[in-house]
Design a protein around this nucleic acid. Sequence first.
DNA 1: TGTGACTAATCAAATTCTTGAGTAGTGGAG
DNA 2: CTCCACTACTCAAGAATTTGATTAGTCACA
Lengths: 201, 201
Amino acid sequence: MALRHAVLAALLDGEYSGYQLAKAFDIGVANFWHALPQQLYAELTKLEKEGLIAGRQVVQETRPNKRLFQVTKAGRAELEDFAAAVSKPSSIRDDLLVKVQVADRVGTASVIGQLEERASAAEGKIELLGALLRQLRGDVDEEEFLRHGERIGPYLTCLRGLSFEQEHRDWCLRIASVLKERSALKERSVLKERKSTRAER
Amino acid sequence: MALRHAVLAALLDGEYSGYQLAKAFDIGVANFWHALPQQLYAELTKLEKEGLIAGRQVVQETRPNKRLFQVTKAGRAELEDFAAAVSKPSSIRDDLLVKVQVADRVGTASVIGQLEERASAAEGKIELLGALLRQLRGDVDEEEFLRHGERIGPYLTCLRGLSFEQEHRDWCLRIASVLKERSALKERSVLKERKSTRAER
DNA sequence: TGTGACTAATCAAATTCTTGAGTAGTGGAG
DNA sequence: CTCCACTACTCAAGAATTTGATTAGTCACA
């Protein structure tokens, strides 16, 4: 039941249409809750039906019309309740880790490639998040901002996203290099074996 | 489609029953793929039907009978294919981050409590993972083990789990202290205001 | 002599998430 | 002038995940 609350949380920062929300999700909220546009539209419809958000039509000339949504009082109350309720534990869910788990039993080459790809994707996200953080805090330094800024929620979650991506990148690079070294060692020992086999004949 | 591969990966380390698998999942595989027992039983049934694992009945005297499963050749091949295929990006999915996102707009007290609970849960997991890592590597040091150990897959994924939990703990504590300081500041300014209001009368 | 915890599973239902396609107009690049 | 990308949204099918019970014997503890 957290998608609805993630949507409410995102709408707290301003009016959005489904389409805009999908974009905003990708950079901000996706740090802790990923969702496809279809889900967002569906959730917005449900939330409106339940009176937790209110939508208004905006007629546009050169673009299709859109509906902007904002959180109602009931929506705010719902968020309050949610914040007070117990949360379930967080966890990683990652294909690539499954592959690493079996990396010493199956072909390694492809996994190494994927680790490096992942590392560079993480790098990209790190830069993005860094820029977002600078933008959110303005000219003041972090300590100051965290003490006195008015809207620190998104900043705090971005910090978590950033550290996650950094750890992820570092781990990917470390593991890639470990697997590479091991396959190089194996290669060498295979060559040696061939050589000695030849010598025996 | 990664649960099936996570199960195959886990079974690579030995024969397990559904029940044992559920336990093993909790400490090892759950680091990158969490699943409930019901899911595991269902998946084992499917995998057996498809010939990717083979089960054998073990009759027990004092305990209910159980079925132990091991990966077949076809299962190994399936894992190979999986390891070679592209993976989808990883991400955090966490209730608590949704709450932090709105922490400056709703009641903070409960969120602070939850952050501290989470931190101590993470602490517990850190110790568990540390012990697991020591056990996996035996007496040799990490560098040595990663270079020459035969089964490093689980070690590598535990390393990821460990760094995730450490970051998670640190972040929770940091955020909790930020939110506490802010609410203390607010408290003080409210008191001051009351005082000056009283003085005015 | 109950009480609760552990082993070993299975069933059903509801909910959530993913995959994939489709509509329809605008505006820019080559 | 065609093709592609962008805005804005919808529909449906399916797979995956969660929630919540239920069965049934064993064992330790008080």
